[in-house]
Structure formats: C-alpha cells, structure tokens
C-alpha cells in the first residue's frame, strides 16, 4: 500500500468516526448510540474488570478450537475427496446442508442436543468446515494434469505427491479460505454464545450489555471481537505461510 492510499484510507476512517460522533450527538441518548469517545473510555477500563480476561479466553479458546478442528478435518477430507471422486459425491449432501442451513437453526438444534459449553466449538466448526473443505478440494483439482502424468510415470508415492504437487496447488486456496473462515467462525461463534447465553463467554457479555442498555459496553465488546478476529486471522495465516515456506525448503 503506497502512502497516498494509506492517507486516503486514514482520512476515510477519520471521517467515519466523525460521522459516528455527530450521529451520537444528534441522537443524544447513550442507550441508543454511544459516541466513539465514550466507547474509547469504556475500552480503556473494561480490561481491568475481573471477568474480562476469562470471557476473552473462554470465547477465544472455543472459537479457535472449532476452527482448528474444521481446518484439520477440511484439509483431510478435501485432499481425500480430491483424489477419490466417490468421496466427493458421498460428502456432497452433508457439505451442502452445512453450507445452506441458516446458522441460527443449527444453534437452536444444538441447544436441544448438547452441553451449552460445547456449542461455540461446534458452531465455529460448522461455519468454517465447508469453506476449508471446498477450497482444499478446489486446490487439489487445480493441480496440473501434466504434473500428475509425470508423477505417475516416475511412480512417485502419494506422500511426495502431496508435498511437492498438491501443497503448492492448495496453498493460495487454503490461505484465502483461512482468512474468510476465521472471520466467519468468530461471527457465528459469538452469535451462538448470545443465543445460547453461554456462561462466562463474550457472547454473554454482549447479551448483558443489550439487557442493561449499556450501549458503550456493547460497542466496546464488538470492537474487541473484531480485534480478536483480525488478530487470530493474522497469526494463523502467518503460521500456515511459515509451514508452507518450511515445506518448500525441503
């Protein structure tokens, strides 16, 4: 990003904040819309509260676990389905159902079936899995046919094909899938916590802010969720890229 682009983006963000401040001043009711200054003040103090870190770690841990499970299962099934056409057909109805059923329906169904504490993990998994699986499958399918021909001729075993042929093909797909899926896992995971009123979670904090008309708290937690989502995305994508770099140096 060059300096000019950075400047324009910075000015746009400053304008958006100004607009928010003016809107809050116009409405003049904190319970409807807190101003950015109030949210900033709240942000400066919220982390000192006793249950702040426990809520953050609770939600972060569960959403990350759900995403990591989706990442692992999505990669394994994506690779296998890329090789075995019948597996792709076999998985098709399940993946389609997970992709198309509204996440709220899943949350309510899960609330009937399981422990509330596990809800976030399962919902994060369900939202991230199809994204990872579909992209890995697409990546495997995009492997150069001529390279496949060569590997067959030289009798290259599947482990080496995986490292030298499939991983480079999957890499761009997987990286973009991770960026998308982590954000989605956070959105859906927090929604599940709000609907399921999961004890000690960030979602519960959001719900309490709504119940007690604490608009500054609501926006403060929203900003924290965005920051956590972006941070986990950056860290995870960096780790995945490092793994690929390591493999390429084999």
């Amino acid at each position: 990003m060059n300096k000019k682009t950075q400047l324009w983006k910075g000015l746009s963000a400053a304008f958006a904040l100004l607009l928010w401040q003016l809107l809050a001043m116009k409405i003049g009711m904190n319970i409807l819309l807190a101003s950015p200054v109030e949210v900033l003040k709240r942000l400066a103090g919220i982390w000192k509260e006793t249950d702040f870190w426990s809520a953050v770690f609770f939600s972060f841990g569960r959403i990350s676990l759900g995403f990591l499970l989706a990442f692992a299962v999505g990669i394994v099934l994506g690779i296998l389905a890329g090789r075995l056409k019948f597996l792709e057909y076999f998985l098709f109805p399940y993946v389609t159902v997970i992709k198309t059923v509204p996440i709220a329906s899943f949350i309510i169904l899960c609330l009937l079936w399981m422990n509330f504490n596990q809800l976030t993990v399962l919902i994060a998994f369900l939202i991230a899995f199809p994204v990872i699986y579909t992209n890995v499958l697409q990546g495997i399918r995009s492997t150069d046919k001529k390279m496949r021909e060569l590997a067959k001729l030289y009798r290259v075993p599947w482990q080496r094909r995986l490292i030298y042929m499939d991983m480079p093909s999957v890499k761009p797909y997987l990286l973009s899938a991770c960026s998308v899926a982590i954000g989605m896992a956070w959105k859906a995971g927090i929604a599940a916590e709000v609907i399921g009123l999961v004890d000690g979670s960030v979602g519960e904090k959001l719900y309490q802010a709504k119940v007690y008309f604490q608009n500054a708290d609501l926006l403060c937690w929203t900003i924290l969720i965005i920051l956590l989502s972006v941070l986990s995305e950056k860290i995870f994508v960096f780790l995945v890229k490092s793994v690929f770099r390591g493999v390429e140096k084999l």
Partner: peptide, 23 residues
C-alpha cells in the same frame, strides 16, 4: 522409465535439488 517431456514439468515452488528428490 524416465521421460524428459517437451515441457519442463517441474515443481515450480521448490529448489532444483527438491525437484530431483521428488522422483
């Protein structure tokens, strides 16, 4: 059988030695 195709057909993201290791 070894085959040198008209196209190089290399693992482009890997080093020359890794390409030999591939087969």
């Amino acid at each position: 059988i070894a085959f040198v195709f008209q196209e190089d057909r290399l693992c482009e993201d890997f080093s020359a030695r890794s390409n030999l290791r591939f087969v």
